[in-house]
């Protein structure tokens, strides 16, 4: 187990290096000049733009900039935002609590609802309930968060006046964005749970368990669900990763802070260090969530360890 963990950590470092490098290179292939964007309203002359580029070190050869940047990252210095001059680490970290809060809340809704629906559906395979639930799942997966978010605001904020439409702080401002994201996740997890459970329920050990005279609830939870859990866990890991950066539309509709919005804004402004830093952070948390999922595999299925 430890050996595997060490190997994973080394691999993680390589992946992070690749992530940083790709982000660095990709941003430099995008046409445009961050300084020109920044100074666009000042009527800055070409000379002035060149001056500012020099002050920011953007006039150096790309390779030199890359090596300098990488050196900084190794020392834990992600540089400063071109636009604000604030340290990237600080900028990213102040957005992180909002993203974490929304991720956790959506996952709670998504996982609990998804597994419940998936189970209900699998255990009544082919029934009306099963079909209805799977229609819901398709709906949930394909529903654009932009549309669903606005619909919720329209109903619960504008018509009923129950919930505030914007910002964060407290359950009342968390519930709508979490439901928007959570329902999408629930739909995905319900489908995975259903197919995994349907498969497991046909296994011989389920028949054996029933033959032993175990109560159906025990059969389902202890014998079937535990075995069906591996693909569900994998999906949960992927969804967490997606939520870290992919909640941008929901964040925008509900005027929330978040890593997704931060990153998109940084990309459009071509704030190189900020994009690289935000991507790096997301990569770290994505890998961490997947590492946790991998470790949970071992808990769920001891055979994986060997």
């Amino acid at each position: 187990m430890w050996q595997q963990l060490v190997r994973r950590l080394i691999l993680s470092v390589v992946v992070l290096w690749l992530v940083v490098t790709i982000a660095f290179v990709a941003m430099r292939f995008v046409p445009g000049d961050p300084v020109a964007v920044m100074l666009q309203k000042s009527g800055a002359s070409a000379v002035r733009i060149a001056e500012v580029r020099h002050e920011l070190g953007l006039d150096q050869p790309t390779a030199v900039q890359y090596v300098k940047y990488l050196g900084g990252v190794v020392r834990g210095d992600l540089g400063k935002s071109i636009f604000t001059g604030r340290p990237v680490t600080e900028v990213v970290l102040e957005q992180f609590p909002a993203t974490l809060e929304l991720t956790v809340a959506s996952m709670i809704i998504g996982v609990s609802l998804g597994i419940a629906l998936g189970l209900a559906s699998a255990l009544r395979e082919g029934s009306l309930v099963d079909n209805a639930l799977m229609v819901f799942a398709v709906f949930g997966v394909s529903m654009p968060s932009f549309w669903f978010g606005l619909l919720l605001i329209y109903v619960f904020s504008l018509i009923l006046g129950w919930l505030p439409a914007t910002g964060q702080g407290g359950l009342s401002r968390l519930i709508m964005p979490a439901v928007v994201l959570g329902l999408g996740i629930a739909a995905t997890i319900a489908r995975i749970t259903r197919s995994s459970m349907v498969e497991v329920m046909r296994k011989e050990y389920i028949t054996t368990a029933r033959a032993k005279g175990l109560r159906e609830r025990v059969v389902i939870v202890r014998h079937a669900l535990k075995n069906a859990l591996i693909p569900i866990l994998t999906m949960i890991g992927l969804e967490v990763g997606w939520l870290l950066g992919g909640a941008v539309v929901t964040e925008t509709v509900f005027s929330r802070q978040g890593l997704g919005r931060l990153t998109i804004n940084a990309v459009t402004q071509m704030d190189f260090p900020l994009v690289q830093g935000a991507v790096l952070f997301m990569a770290v948390f994505y890998m961490a969530s997947n590492l946790i999922v991998d470790m949970l595999y071992v808990v769920v299925d001891p055979r994986i360890q060997t």
Partner: peptide, 18 residues
């Protein structure tokens, strides 16, 4: 000063008094 990027949401919260 709240930053509300969606114009439909700005309209909405103005109407509700938020």
């Amino acid at each position: 000063y709240k930053f509300v990027p969606e114009s439909t949401v700005r309209t909405g919260i103005l109407q509700t008094g938020e």
